[in-house]
Design a protein around this nucleic acid. Structure first.
Length: 565
RNA sequence: GUUCCUAUCGCUUAACUGGAUAAAGCAGUGCCCUCCUAAGGCGUAGCUAGAGGUUCGAGUCCUCUUAGGAAUACCA
């Protein structure tokens, strides 16, 4: 239910009736319960334009607000605020509609947008490390979210599978002469071994360099080895995706190498549009206002990542037909994307009406605020981090209840992985993220565990109830009123989170919802003695809708729930 | 040097995009289990980096200052 839009329509109707020929600004949620449910602040904004004092305008509007439908009360306050109270009967009926609907009465886009979400993008020469975590988690959430809202989402995993280091790696793979699966278990080690060999043995180094040229010129044997290497490395990534519950598959992979054949054309076409300039032997595009050019071809004829990105942008806009292209990449590459986007538009690779956005996120830090590293300074492998999360989760729950081994095993996975994801998604994505095990696995505060607990607690109500849900939702007291409105806000929250690509708006909302429910539940007994049947049924339905909303919200974040915790 | 980003309570974050007395959690600190999961709830204390400006109204917009961070020509 698009709650805000619905209220806005009522305000617009009041404008029309009052013969004010303006488009009102949107209502917003009231800042305090005393100020009603929603407030309209537009009277003050119009004061100058209409040459009237704001309270006068507000009074005029209030006379024309329909109080028989969704709004039950409207009051002027302060300099010209209009406080609005929603009709409890209407709220109740909307909740009743939502609770029996599989989509919780959330609409799908009238005009679905074809959107490419580019995320994860691991380098095939190395094991996935913590640096890939944020992109993978945030990107997957964004894709889930847009998908749920009805957009046509195309996931793209722009893996790094090309470049000089691969010559060395496949030369080494051939040298040790295995099928690869053994030594490649630990890519990090394999890379180190290859590098050691490369540095120590001049003839091997020559061979490695030779292999680079060979792959690039399409030598079948070398390409086969390369393909094998990529397959195994990608397999490692898929193991991580699987553990994380991220939906990326092989079909989503459009590797760097995928664009190889296009790179030459990119340069040619840039030249045709006249933006290309030579500088110090390199082919560059100089953008207005930028000191440093975008280099698209090196002095030696080689291409750069800007070239690949341009090819990818063109492919996504023209072949895939995307209208929105979102790159979920570290904030430090902001400058690069700004430039590449500009070049792509200027050169006509991407039509003007296509929205290009860099979904930037901050760096992952350790507890002391330094970049996240292992004790000896190495990068933390993602797979190890996830395994540790599950172990820690196991530790956290093992004393709480009597669980069987199997139950602990399953619970720990859901809790541990959920904790890692939720903690990442719950903060403003643009700020640096301080990784803290104790915090993310805490039962208190805005954590996945609290959300999962809230959900499980509601499920436990239904285990005790064991009957048939019937009857109406009755908004009895202030907490029921607030809870019901909170539930109806879900779609507004999702819409905004989608526009801003900010998952933390979803986590904040879910947390507020869960907290509000706990308060409601504390004050309004459901299954206790003495609760009349009508209240019981009403409260059960609100509980049900709360649980369903939490479940759906977490599902978008890629986090599972459990029935019992 | 230049450009960009950030600055909200001891810590991590909100503030519906310019609206009323800035809101949560953690960490403090009280209180509530004969009571539907105390893995919960209720209290309590504490904040917009500084100076100007725009506006009826500024954490939010503009200018300067300060402090952090990042990017900065052939790596991705």
């Amino acid at each position: 239910m698009k709650l805000k839009q619905t209220i806005n329509q009522s305000i617009q109707a009041a404008f029309d009736k009052a013969n004010i020929d303006e488009t009102p600004m949107s209502v917003s949620e009231a800042t305090k319960p005393e100020f009603g449910d929603y407030q309209f602040n537009g009277a003050m904004a119009l004061s100058k334009k209409l040459e009237k004092n704001p309270r006068e305008i507000a009074a005029q509007l209030i006379e024309n607000i329909d109080l028989s439908g969704i709004i039950s009360k409207a009051e002027i306050a302060g300099p010209g605020f209009i406080n609005l109270w929603l009709n409890p009967l209407w709220i109740a009926s909307q909740c009743e509609t939502a609770v029996v609907d599989t989509r919780l009465n959330i609409g799908t886009r009238e005009k679905p947008v074809k959107v490419v979400v580019d995320y994860s993008g691991p380098n095939m020469a190395k094991q996935m490390h913590v640096g890939h975590l944020r992109s993978t988690i945030i990107g997957d959430t964004l894709a889930n979210l847009l998908e749920f809202l009805g957009d046509e989402v195309i996931r793209q995993n722009h893996i790094g599978d090309w470049g000089t280091q691969f010559g060395m790696l496949i030369a080494y793979l051939e040298e040790i002469g295995e099928d690869g699966s053994g030594s490649l278990k630990d890519l990090e080690q394999f890379y180190k071994d290859a590098k050691g060999h490369f540095d120590a043995d001049a003839s091997f180094a020559d061979k490695a360099r030779e292999y680079v040229v060979k792959i690039q010129s399409g030598d079948t044997h070398c390409l086969q080895l390369w393909q094998k290497f990529i397959d195994i490395s990608l397999g490692h990534c898929e193991e991580v995706y699987d553990k994380l519950g991220v939906k990326l598959t092989r079909e989503d992979v459009r590797a760097e190498s995928f664009y190889n054949d296009e790179l030459e054309n990119v340069i040619k076409d840039l030249d045709k549009t006249g933006v290309l300039q030579e500088s110090d032997g390199a082919q560059c595009v100089f953008l207005e206002g930028d000191e440093v050019p975008v280099i698209v071809q090196k002095g030696d004829g080689g291409y750069l990542y800007a070239t690949t990105d341009l090819a990818a942008l063109r492919y996504r806009a023209q072949v895939l037909g995307a209208k929105r292209i979102s790159y979920v990449v570290d904030a430090r590459q902001g400058g690069h994307f700004k430039q590449v986007f500009k070049v792509a538009k200027e050169a006509g690779f991407v039509p003007e009406d296509v929205k290009l956005e860099h979904i930037a996120f901050g760096t992952m830090m350790d507890k002391s605020g330094k970049p996240f590293k292992t004790r000896d300074g190495g990068t933390v492998k993602l797979i190890d981090l996830l395994d540790e999360a599950v172990l820690k989760a196991k530790d956290a729950i093992k004393d709480k209840e009597d669980y069987t081994e199997a139950e602990i095993h399953d619970l720990a996975k859901v809790i541990g992985i959920g904790a890692v994801k939720y903690a990442d998604l719950a903060i403003n994505r643009e700020s640096n993220y301080i990784f803290n095990w104790d915090k993310m696995l805490s039962f208190d505060g805005n954590t996945s565990l609290y959300m999962q607990y809230a959900y499980a607690r509601i499920q436990s109500i239904f285990r005790r109830f064991d009957g048939e849900l019937k009857g109406n939702i009755i908004i009895g007291d202030a907490l029921e009123h607030r809870l019901a409105i909170m539930l109806l806000r879900f779609e507004d929250i999702l819409d905004r989170a989608a526009t801003d690509a900010s998952p933390n708006q979803i986590t904040s909302y879910l947390y507020d919802l869960a907290t509000l429910f706990m308060r409601f539940y504390e004050q309004n007994p459901i299954l206790k003695e003495g609760v009349d049947e009508a209240s019981k049924m009403s409260r059960l339905q609100l509980a049900d809708l709360t649980a369903k909303t939490i479940k759906q919200g977490l599902a978008i974040l890629g986090i599972q729930v459990v029935n019992k915790l």
